[in-house]
Design a protein around this nucleic acid. Structure first.
Lengths: 341, 341
DNA sequence: TTGTATGCGTTATCAG
DNA sequence: CTGATAACGCATACAA
């Protein structure tokens, strides 16, 4: 079984050159030989050596995703889903997915390794922060990349993100329209750009509604279920100033919030209204609680789109839409009611 | 800035050969030049081209992990944690981690691509099934691999796994010792090897205790929280034959089970005893429910160990322990009590 | 201790 | 339409 281009060529009594061109679909090879070569290759189970290919072509045929563990050490299920979307797009194009797990300390060096060594043809930068040195680094290189999220200054690089301010604005509209005035806000760490933007949206909406923010009503929920749970318990402990509605800026925290409410015996939708941005994960038994949500395109779809953008960039094609801002949608649920009087 | 070995050599007035050897820590190069080269390389930010290196050396300097999405489409947080462990071991060794997301349909082809194209030097096969064609395929190749889990026949390949029968045996001992006789069992899909083995352990333990298995007490919980939740609801609906204890074979299902019990107002530990294998994930607010568990080494540690084994295999070193069977430990909790009389 | 020549498997250039 | 020849960037016998 020929494992080699040379051997395959010898077998076919052709030159390696011709075989190579036949396999790569060049126009200047007769249809007859193309067929013959293709069959022989498949029969022999021939796979070109990526290393040699890369060396000759100068491309890595790989895309990198750097996963910062500290940000989310337990593993956000949405992250794997996003990677699934990326893979689905890249698979047919013959690209590999390099997953680099980086501690905060070594993160930048990881990027340097990938870029300098041309280990990848492009990168997807997830978990963007308000001020993000990874983006700063990539700006100075020729390496194509897509931000999965924006940064504070983001007009000069391509990204895909959700309209985060709109997320909170939309949610706040629904709440104020129902008469809520004491609206609590549970958020992710504010160095993450999406969290900061959603938080801004909350503040602006409060101001627009003529409401004063009670500092006790704004709590960080960390990245996980547990954080949301504890933040909510603190809110419930407020005697006189207990909020009548809670807005949660991410799905995992949302689970914790709903848990805490159920456990405390609070009637969701009457005693306490709840909106969770991104909605609850479908794998939770709470899913049937029918919690109102701000819905985004799925992580899978986002991954697919980003991979598609990245491929265009790698091929040197211009991006018709270099900055993709997905608009959120309000999804009603039984967790929403009029403010108690 | 030299991006080339040749350029770097020219800069140093040395031959590329010498520079190469200096960088790769060969013995036959003077300490003085080694220093000089190392500094110059760092100063110039030189990174050797992996493609060229791979072609010359014949190694990929990469390890592959194939993630089957169907098995667990929402993304098990433990999976990312395991990858983190793999990366931590591999990082210093200069290996990349290739993550291939595979649909069941294309799974085998993915393996072929990785192996035939020598895209990786070794593989980690996760989610092993009782009868696993991926393992069968790899057996026929020279590609080193480690099973993250066993298969029905597994004496001829290296793996890391938990003693699954011991998991259920341990748990069952605790339950029968407390007088439980109606012990329900919620399990993952039985085509997964770990699920089958744990199930076997359950059956054996029941027999050993002289108990008869009630078919209504054995339910599949799927892979997620939701499945565990629904299975538990079905158990609670049993009027006369309601179990007094529930054993759950995986962590995510366990969350659902505890949820269902709390929601139904069941007193955990008195009305119903619960043991969850792997314990509840720490990011759940239920963590303080203090559920009894069968504890395993962390996914991170497992990943690290497997990567370590794989490196040895790649380097041709013999494995002193080719089959690593981790012993589980019983961890008591308030979820365990005497059987109600 | 260092340098020269050659090869890794593929693609690209340039003739036929 | 096809074939010889030279890269791609690095590592390694072998020679000096």
């Amino acid at each position: 079984m020929p494992t080699d281009l040379k051997q395959l060529a010898a077998l076919l009594k052709l030159s390696p050159t011709t075989v190579s061109r036949a396999l790569n679909g060049y126009s200047d090879v007769s249809e007859a030989t193309r067929q013959r070569v293709a069959e022989a290759a498949k029969a022999a189970g021939y796979e070109p050596s990526p290393a040699a290919r890369r060396l000759a072509i100068g491309r890595a045929d790989a895309v990198g995703i750097v996963y910062p563990v500290e940000a989310d050490f337990m593993g956000n299920p949405l992250f794997l889903e996003m990677i699934g979307g990326v893979s689905d797009r890249l698979d047919g194009a013959g690209y590999d997915v390099l997953l680099a797990v980086a501690r905060k300390k070594t993160e930048l060096r990881t990027y340097e390794r990938l870029v300098r060594g041309r280990r990848v043809d492009g990168l997807i930068v997830a978990h963007t922060r308000v001020k993000d040195e990874r983006i700063d680094f990539l700006r100075g290189t020729q390496m194509p990349f897509i931000g999965y999220g924006r940064t504070s200054e983001c007009d000069d690089f391509p990204w895909l993100d959700f309209d985060n301010e709109a997320c909170t604005r939309l949610a706040m509209n629904e709440l104020t329209a129902r008469g809520h005035r004491r609206i609590a806000y549970i958020h992710s760490p504010l160095n993450l750009n999406f969290a900061q933007q959603r938080y801004d949206g909350y503040l602006k909406a409060m101001a627009a509604a003529g409401l004063v923010v009670n500092p006790e009503h704004v709590l960080t929920g960390g990245h996980d279920r547990r954080g949301g749970y504890e933040a909510t318990k603190r809110l419930l402990a407020l005697a006189d100033t207990r909020p009548t509605a809670i807005l949660v800026d991410s799905n995992l925290c949302g689970v914790g919030t709903v848990r805490a409410l159920l456990q405390a015996g609070i009637a969701i939708g009457t005693e306490m209204s709840v909106i969770v941005i991104d909605g609850l994960p479908v794998d939770t038994p709470l899913y049937d609680q029918d919690i109102a949500a701000i819905a985004q395109p799925t992580a899978h779809a986002s991954g697919w789109t980003m991979a598609d953008m990245l491929l265009k960039l790698i091929e040197g094609k211009p991006l018709d839409e270099p900055r993709v801002l997905k608009q959120p949608q309000f999804v009603n649920g039984r967790s929403l009611g009029l403010a108690p009087t």
